[in-house]
Amino acid sequence: MNTMTYKGYKASIAFDEKDDIFFGRLLGINDVVGFHADTVADLKAAFHEAVNDYVETCAKVGKSPEKPYSGNLMLRVDPAVHSKVALAAEVAGKSLNQWGEEVLRAAADKQVA
Rank of each mutant, 00 (worst) to 15 (best):
Tyr69Met: 00
His48Asn: 13
Tyr54Asp: 00
Asp109Lys: 10
Glu66Met: 11
Asp53His: 06
Glu102Cys: 10
Glu49Ala: 15
His36Ala: 07
Gly24Gln: 06
Ala80Val: 07
Asn30Gly: 14
Ser12Lys: 10
Ala106Asn: 08
Val32Gln: 14
Gly34Ile: 08
Gly28Glu: 05
Gly100Cys: 02
Lys60Gly: 05
Ala92Leu: 04
Ala14Leu: 09
Pro68Gly: 10
Thr3Tyr: 09
Lys7Asp: 10
Asn30Ser: 13
Ala89Tyr: 09
Thr57Phe: 10
Ala89Ile: 02
Ala113Met: 14
Ile21Ser: 07
Ala88Gln: 05
Ser64Thr: 13
Asp42Ile: 01
Lys94Val: 00
Leu87Pro: 02
Leu87Trp: 05
His36Met: 04
Ala88His: 04
Asp20His: 11
His82Gln: 14
Gly8Gln: 11
His82Ser: 13
Ala50Asn: 08
Gly93Ala: 03
Asn2Met: 05
Asp38Phe: 09
Asp38Glu: 09
Asp109Met: 11
Pro68Glu: 13
Phe23Ala: 01
Gln111Lys: 12
Glu90Ala: 10
Glu17Met: 11
Phe22Gln: 01
Glu102Tyr: 06
Glu102Gln: 13
Arg105Pro: 04
Gly28Trp: 07
Val40Thr: 05
Asn72Ser: 14
Met1Gly: 13
Leu26Trp: 05
Ala37Pro: 01
Lys67Met: 15
Ala41Phe: 11
His48Ser: 00
Trp99Gly: 04
Asp53Ala: 13
Asn30Cys: 12
Val32His: 14
Asp78Trp: 11
Ile13Val: 15
Val81His: 14
Arg76Asn: 14
His82Met: 15
Gly24Cys: 08
Glu90His: 02
Thr5Gln: 12
Lys94Arg: 05
Asp31Gln: 15
Thr3Glu: 05
Leu73Gly: 12
Asp19Gln: 12
Ala41Met: 03
Phe47Thr: 00
Ala59Gly: 05
Thr5Glu: 09
Arg76Lys: 12
Met4His: 02
Ala46Tyr: 08
Pro65Lys: 03
Glu102Arg: 03
Phe22Ile: 00
Ile29Arg: 08
Thr39Asp: 04
Phe35Ala: 01
Thr3Cys: 03
His48Thr: 04
Glu101His: 12
Ile29Met: 06
Pro65Arg: 06
Gly8Cys: 05
Asp78Cys: 09
Leu73His: 11
Glu56Ser: 09
Gly34Arg: 15
Ile21Thr: 07
